[in-house]
Amino acid sequence: MGKQSDLGDESDALIATVKKELTAIRGAQGILDAQKFNNYPNLVRVCGGGDLLEAFLMFGREMRRYASEGNRNEAAAALSITAPAETVLDRLEYVVGVFEERGQIRDQRTGRRWSDNGISTIAKDLVYIAEVKGRLGTEMLTIEIDGGFDEGLFLSIYQLTTKNLDETAPLIRLWKHARDSDEIQEKKISVDLEKVPATVASNQQYRSARHLVHIELPQDVRDAQQVTAGTVFYSISIEGRDAPMRTVTFADSSQPDPDIGLQFTAYRTLATIDIVAK
Rank of each mutant, 00 (worst) to 15 (best):
G240A: 10
G48F: 07
A266P: 03
M63T: 02
T199F: 01
A243S: 14
L270N: 14
G118Q: 05
S202A: 11
A277P: 04
D192A: 06
W175F: 04
K133H: 07
I119D: 02
Q225G: 10
Q159K: 11
G118F: 03
V95G: 13
V221R: 00
I236H: 01
D150L: 09
D12L: 10
M245G: 04
L57G: 12
M58T: 15
S156A: 06
R173G: 02
G30K: 07
A77Y: 00
I260P: 02
E86H: 08
D192N: 15
E151P: 00
S237A: 08
L160T: 14
D9A: 14
S5V: 09
C47M: 07
R113Y: 09
Q255N: 09
K36A: 09
M1L: 12
E93W: 07
N42D: 06
I215N: 00
V132L: 15
S11G: 14
A224P: 04
T142N: 09
R173C: 06
I105V: 15
R207P: 03
K3V: 14
R241V: 11
I238S: 01
I122C: 03
F56D: 00
G50M: 05
K3C: 13
L270W: 04
L52S: 09
V95L: 09
I157T: 01
A243P: 03
D6W: 12
E131F: 02
D150A: 11
E167K: 07
L92T: 06
S190T: 15
Q263A: 10
K19S: 10
P170E: 05
E239T: 09
Q204H: 10
A78R: 02
K187I: 05
D166P: 10
V227L: 07
L89S: 11
L22R: 08
Q226Y: 15
L92C: 03
S208K: 07
I81V: 08
R91V: 06
G261F: 01
L171I: 13
